[in-house]
């Protein structure tokens, strides 16, 4: 009997939860705030769904009802992606500066 592809995706999902579990426990507590901002940024990879939805509009009708939702989602996700990664970068830079000071 053939295995439903859903099972494969479920396997990926469950294994990723385990990876997440071990990786996150190894994050140093002093970096928990950057952890939250970076997880926030990467969860905006949901933008791939938004792009698919937005590209689905035809040339004559770029803004169909469903593609409009895609376009709005693109803006929301883009705010998150740029905001999330940049603010993380900004925080992590501060952790670097101090090292220089010491030397």
């Amino acid at each position: 009997m053939e295995i439903d592809p859903f099972i494969f995706r479920l396997s990926i999902f469950i294994l990723s939860i385990f990876i997440g579990y071990y990786v996150v426990w190894s994050v140093t507590p002093s970096l928990h705030t950057p952890l939250m901002s970076v997880t926030n940024a990467i969860s905006s990879v949901i933008i791939v769904g938004a792009i698919i939805a937005a590209l689905a509009g035809s040339s004559e009708n770029v803004f169909s009802t469903s593609s409009v939702f895609g376009f709005i989602a693109i803006i929301l996700a883009a705010i998150n992606i740029f905001g999330g990664f940049l603010v993380t970068q900004r925080m992590l830079q501060m952790y670097k500066k101090k090292k220089k000071d010491k030397k």
Partner: peptide
Amino acid sequence: LENTALIITGALVGSSGAIL
């Protein structure tokens, strides 16, 4: 969407938030 990147990311972020 049957998208691996999203599934992996969702699981990572989900467990990260739960641990925190």
